[in-house]
């Protein structure tokens, strides 16, 4: 399976690509009329794949802890790191990790991105803030991807201190989305 984006850059530009200027397509001699008029043959195919991945020991425990409103990591005595999300082996030392460690539900924004469009290129009413959060109590640079909330686009910055906004206990299912988002933990 190659890179999923390869070869996608063709077709009915205005609609498919959400491009601003469909009258100037690049690198093709085909016109939208030729596509719409079925002068070219297509073979369409749709499929649906369903998977159910075993979480295993490390991620299973991680999700169980999230359901309980906690974030856990694993410690490695080889390199003295605390790995978040947890894993049963240390990729640097190639040895089994040692202990479960409760880390904090606070952290620091490592990097972030702001999106004003949805996947189908339609405009969002509210921008979406995606960030990598370095979790307090984990080793430097360790943490995970999540959303930011209760914050304005202009206020977000690298190094911003954040805290998890948990879903109410009865709504948690043992998923990363048991945390609704991270929000600023200090006055901005």
């Amino acid at each position: 399976m190659g890179r999923s984006h390869a070869g996608r850059n063709r077709g009915d530009y205005g609609e498919v690509m959400g491009m601003e200027n469909p009258s100037e397509p690049q690198g093709t001699a085909l016109t939208p009329d030729e596509w719409r008029g079925k002068e070219i043959f297509f073979r369409n195919f749709h499929t649906k794949f369903t998977y159910s991945w075993d979480t295993g020991v490390a991620i299973g425990h991680f999700l169980e802890a999230l359901k309980a409103g906690k974030i856990v990591g694993r410690s490695c005595s080889g390199c003295n790191r605390v790995l978040v999300p947890p894993r049963m082996f240390c990729e640097l030392c190639f040895r089994p990790t040692d202990d479960w460690i409760d880390v904090l539900d606070t952290g620091v924004v490592n990097t972030f991105s702001i999106s004003y469009v949805n996947n189908d290129a339609s405009r969002r009413e509210q921008p979406l803030f995606v960030a990598v959060i370095n979790i307090d109590g984990a080793s430097p640079g360790m943490g995970f991807l999540h959303l930011l909330g209760e914050v304005d686009a202009e206020q977000i910055h690298v190094g911003m201190k954040v805290r998890a906004k948990w879903k109410p206990a009865h709504e948690r299912t043992g998923a990363i989305t048991d945390i609704s988002y991270f929000k600023p933990s200090e006055e901005l």
Partner: peptide, 11 residues
């Protein structure tokens, strides 16, 4: 092999 993730199986 429900007790192990594919990564744990490989390790």
């Amino acid at each position: 092999t429900p007790s192990q993730s594919y990564k744990e199986l490989i390790f």
